[in-house]
Design a protein around this nucleic acid. Structure first.
Lengths: 232, 232
DNA sequence: ATTATAATTATGTATAGACATAACAAATGT
DNA sequence: ACATTTGTTATGTCTATACATAATTATAAT
C-alpha cells in the first residue's frame, strides 16, 4: 500500500519549485516516471499535475523530449462574458433597458465583411440602451442574421433583451471579441449625458455557428468605465 | 477487446448534442456509467470528456446529482499577455524602445493604494516608449517596488526593456489587469503625433509575489489600437 | 415532529498496467 | 554523403478496479 497523494499537492509543489527558481526557465524537469517515484504515486497522477502546469503556461511539454520550464511564461487574462443584466444586478443595481432602434436593413459593408455575408442579406438591426439604476451604462448596436435566427423578426425585444434571447435560444460554436477606445460622437454623447469626444471603451463581438455568422454587436460603454479581471 | 474511443471524440459528440439542442439547457444528461456503456469505453474516459465540457462552461457537474447542461453558459475571452517586443516582431515589424523617464520617487497616492504600499517606500519610476518600425505604439508608465526587486536601481534599462527584465527575473504569483479608454493629454498626444483628446486604449496591470506588490504598469496604446481574441 | 444517523449514489481521483504517438538517435542501404 | 528505416524514449491516453467525497434519501432515535 503506497501513500495517497493528490495531483493538486504535486501540482502545487512543482509550481513552487518553478516560482522559487529551483527549476529555472528553460530547465528540463525530471520525467513523469522519476517524479512518480519521488512522490510515491502513479505516473498518471504526476501526468495530471504536469498537464495543469502546462495549461497555465508554466511548462512546455513535448513527447520523447520531456517537460521544460517555459522561458517566457505566457500569462493569460480570462474575461467572463456575462449577460449585462446579471452584471448589473450582481452589483446591486436595478437593471433596465430601452430599445432605441429596430430595422430590417442591409448592413454596411464593414459589417458585412465582419460577418462574412453576401451583400443581399437583410439583417435585423437593433439598438439598445442598458441602464443601471436608470443611468445609461452601455449602448448596444447589433446586427442579427435571420438566416440562422429563424423567426427573429417576430420577437418582442422590449420584453427580453436581445443578448438574453440569444443566450437562451442559440448556442454559438465560435466567436471573436475585440476591445478598443473611441471618441463619443455627438449622438452617443447625448445618450450618456457626456461631452462630445469623450473617450469610451468599446467591445465588438461576433459569434458564429459553424461557418454561419449569428450576430455581431458593438457595446459602447459609458465614459470612465473600466473592465477588471485577475491574471492567471 | 473493446473499441478504443478517445475522450476527444466523446467530448465532441456530447458537445454536438448540447449545441444542437438534443440536450436542452437545464437537462440532466446521462450519468458517466451510462455514457461509458453507450460509447463502449471506461468511465474515466467519459469523465475526461465531461470535465472538458464543464471547464468550458457548457456543463455544471455536482456529485451525487449528475451533470446538467448550463442554463446560462458562461463564455470566456482569454487574452494572451505577451512581451511587447515579441508581439511587434511576430507581425514582422522592427521593435525599438526608448527610455523617456527614470526616477526614484514616492508614488502618488492612487498608485500607493493600488500597490498596497506604505507612503514612505521610494519606488523606481520608469517610462518607456515602444515603437514598431519607429512608429510609437505604446507608452509605458511603470512603478517598480525595490523591496521585492533587489538591485533594480542598478539595471540598465536602455539595453533591456523593463517588461522583459521582469519576465526573465521574477515570477509573479498573482496579478490583476484592467482595461479602459482615456482621452490623450497634451503631452501624450505629442508622443503619438496625435491630436489632444483622441481616445486611446489603456491597460493597467499590477502584479504580486504573494502579498508583496512587484510592479504596477499603465500601457497607453496608440489611438486606433484594437485588441482581438477568440472566444472560448 | 424534529433531529441525528446511516445508506445510497454520481462524481472525483487514485492505482497498475498497457498500448499509442511523436520526436529524436542510431543503424542501414544506396 | 545522403535518404530511409529501425529503435528508443517521454508523454498521451486507455482500461479496469478501488476508494474518497459530497449530496440526497431513507431510517432510526429523541
Amino acid at each position: 500500500m503506497t501513500t495517497r497523494k493528490s495531483w493538486q499537492s504535486i501540482h502545487d509543489e512543482l509550481r513552487r519549485r518553478i516560482v522559487d527558481g529551483i527549476w529555472q526557465p528553460g530547465d528540463l524537469i525530471p520525467a513523469e516516471e522519476q517524479l512518480a517515484a519521488e512522490f510515491q504515486c502513479a505516473r498518471a497522477t504526476v501526468n495530471r499535475a504536469l498537464r495543469g502546469l502546462a495549461d497555465s503556461g508554466l511548462l512546455n511539454r513535448r513527447r520523447r523530449v520531456g517537460s521544460r520550464v517555459a522561458t517566457e511564461p505566457s500569462r493569460y487574462a480570462t474575461l467572463k462574458i456575462d449577460i449585462i443584466r446579471l452584471e448589473v444586478e450582481q452589483r446591486g443595481a436595478k437593471y433596465r433597458h430601452a430599445l432605441t432602434e429596430r430595422a430590417q436593413v442591409l448592413a454596411p459593408e464593414r459589417v458585412q465583411y465582419r460577418m462574412n455575408l453576401n451583400d443581399d442579406t437583410e439583417l435585423l438591426y437593433i439598438c439598445n440602451l442598458h441602464m443601471a439604476d436608470d443611468r445609461p451604462i452601455i449602448y448596444e448596436e447589433r446586427w442579427l442574421n435571420p438566416v440562422v435566427l429563424h423567426g427573429i423578426f417576430d420577437v418582442d425585444f422590449s420584453a427580453i433583451s436581445v443578448n438574453e434571447w440569444l443566450v437562451r435560444n442559440v448556442m454559438f460554436t465560435r466567436g471573436d471579441i475585440s476591445f478598443c477606445a473611441t471618441n463619443l460622437t455627438e449622438r452617443e454623447a447625448q445618450l450618456f449625458a457626456a461631452d462630445l469626444g469623450e473617450a469610451a471603451f468599446v467591445i465588438e463581438r461576433t459569434t458564429w455557428q459553424d461557418e454561419q455568422c449569428i450576430t455581431s454587436v458593438r457595446l459602447l460603454h459609458e465614459p470612465g468605465f473600466s473592465m477588471r479581471t485577475e491574471l492567471i
